[in-house]
Nucleic acid binder design. Structure first.
Lengths: 339, 339
DNA sequence: ACGTCCAGGACAGGATCTGACCTACATCGG
DNA sequence: CCGATGTAGGTCAGATCCTGTCCTGGACGT
């Protein structure tokens, strides 16, 4: 009970609550004298955690922003909230911090009590997927496993379903997780095939670490990201889309996000968007969500998709089309296979 | 040199890395004997942190899931990733954990070093907003301030713009943050008006805590959530939407998320959706994103909105609309048709 | 002016921590 | 099957550190 390190941790936890704590209250709560509390505060300050104290009658201690991150002490609900947030972030990677995001998720999932894990799972499925069509989506849990294996330099075994549908079992030395074109890829050295391979994470099933450590291995020659993008561009069919938006360029940029595509102004009220994508649905919905008039110049696949979408939405709103459908008994196809 | 508490924290930080640490390596890194490491491990276990050890030649220590959350020790990038994730979560509240999510954000923002805060800000604006139309959106930073004030029971001052556009300055005792209909509301006691009020967070400007604490105050009679929803339903105009989806009910539920609306099966391939919403755009896009045929039976406003959307999308894909531009080619420097 | 709060020095006694050395047990690889 | 390497844990002596109890001083609000 009266263990000094334990008390320091508890103190850190109390100070993280966004309120001020008078020394006397802290002393009472931790079962020590106020003098000891002052000493503990001093110790925390020596450790680099900036504890701010406001003098005076209504004063107290509180932990403020410093130069280093203090250990975050979360209660159950906060931990769940963070886990859910990170999982959705893993589904919608944000440029520049994808890897850190997954790393944080791996760190959290490693120590997340099982009862909380269950809650995260149910909440996660309850969340609106927010991906437009029924595209393949990665399991954040799998992603965390992969990230842990990368960090641990641990050999990994998993089942992989190639693009042509053929399944295979792999034993690889994971090297890096990268995001390109809104998709997760695992760069790894395939021990069976004795060469570097890039795996789409959404096609990886049941990954589990083998416990075998492998010596760090370097990609031949080039940089990892360059290697991946060069391979991907030759591998995945991407479309180059061009559209005219009837919206000021500045507004389009803020609405679309900076990371996506190139927006160049035409005049004050219109601009041109050039974007590369391999998921037409995603781009189509982003455009439709803008709320302004726009014209799509290409590729033909995107035009076609938009035409179908427009027709479907119009049918949904039109009683005439509804009557025709009712007569024909048109059934809806299952959402198409992945692009 | 480095005293015991600091070493324990460092040890906890190392063990959170998803890899195994042999005791000898930990000893070397922390500058103590392996015996001391073993003792520290024992101390951590006494504190409730489950440190797992694998015996044998390739053994080592690692922190595993236990019954309580250990303090999370994050590096800079991970902290940024979590902050970004929470901010987007604040924009898209997930049922049941909205409050915890904001609380975690407040806790993190309180101790986030300023350089990291800047990175979070820029990344956040770069993120795709993902809200369909140009609806008002809350500033996560403000939300964190409000959450801190609620937790701290601290009086709050802010400028408020009422629904009729009239601006006012308020001094309130914050009581609770709630989400209803995908919007954030602050329930507070208005000190100037001497009564309970509900404020829409997106209409609050420049909130800042006054430092004055207020005694905890209880809502009269009813429960907070009940009070809010009863007030809101009499306040905000909500639409009751009914639609038929050509999609199995089970799939519709997983695609739409459980929290939204009531889905009841009609037969194996179709189902009926009943939903309440005050933002037609949101519902319209959720329906369009489903990818299946659907018909909207009401309200008329939704039908109208969908018709306009369908027409716009069709225009975007229609060669007729493009004909004027196509005549001149689609070069960027071509001035668009005059407004 | 007064009360309340933080800041920090000095000191003595006692609790606690460390390192060294020991044995026992689990696991892997030859 | 044996040895190497890892964890698990006991014991002991000495040094270290920590705590509670004094104390003075400064800051702030009433």
């Amino acid at each position: 009970m009266s263990d000094t390190p334990a008390r320091l941790l508890a103190l850190l936890s109390l100070l993280q609550t966004p309120r001020e704590w008078p020394g006397s209250e802290l002393a009472e709560r931790l079962g020590v004298t106020t003098r000891t509390i002052r000493r503990d505060i001093g110790r925390l300050r020596d450790l680099g955690y900036p504890v701010e104290a406001t003098m005076g009658a209504v004063g107290g201690y509180r932990l403020v922003a410093g130069t280093a991150m203090p250990p975050l002490l979360l209660d159950d609900e906060e931990a769940v909230a963070i886990a859910v947030g990170l999982r959705t972030a893993a589904r919608h990677p944000v440029a520049g911090i994808e890897e850190a995001s997954v790393r944080a998720l791996a760190k959290l999932e490693q120590v997340l009590p099982s009862r909380l894990r269950r809650r995260v799972g149910t909440l996660n499925t309850a969340t609106v997927p927010m991906v437009p069509a029924g595209g393949p989506s990665v399991d954040p849990q799998d992603l965390a496993v992969l990230a842990a294996a990368v960090a641990n330099r641990e050999r990994l075994r998993f089942a992989y379903q190639a693009a042509d549908g053929a399944g295979s079992r792999r034993l690889v030395e994971p090297y890096r997780l990268v995001v390109a074109e809104r998709r997760w890829y695992l760069v790894a050295y395939d021990d069976d095939r004795d060469d570097w391979r890039i795996f789409r994470v959404d096609r990886i099933r049941q990954p589990h670490p083998t416990g075998m450590r492998n010596a760090p291995r370097e990609l031949p020659g080039e940089d990892a990201a360059a290697y991946v993008t060069s391979t991907l561009y030759s591998l995945a069919p991407t479309y180059s889309a061009v559209a005219t938006l009837h919206m000021p360029a500045a507004e389009a940029i803020t609405r679309l996000g900076e990371a996506s595509g190139v927006v160049e102004p035409i005049d004050e009220r219109t601009c041109r968007l050039r974007d590369h994508t391999d998921t037409l649905e995603w781009l189509a919905f982003r455009l439709a969500m803008l709320g302004c008039e726009f014209e799509v110049h290409g590729p033909p696949e995107l035009v076609e998709y938009l035409a179908a979408l427009g027709a479907r939405v119009t049918r949904a709103a039109s009683p005439v089309a509804r009557a025709a459908q009712a007569a024909d008994g048109i059934a809806c196809d299952t959402p198409g296979p992945d692009s």
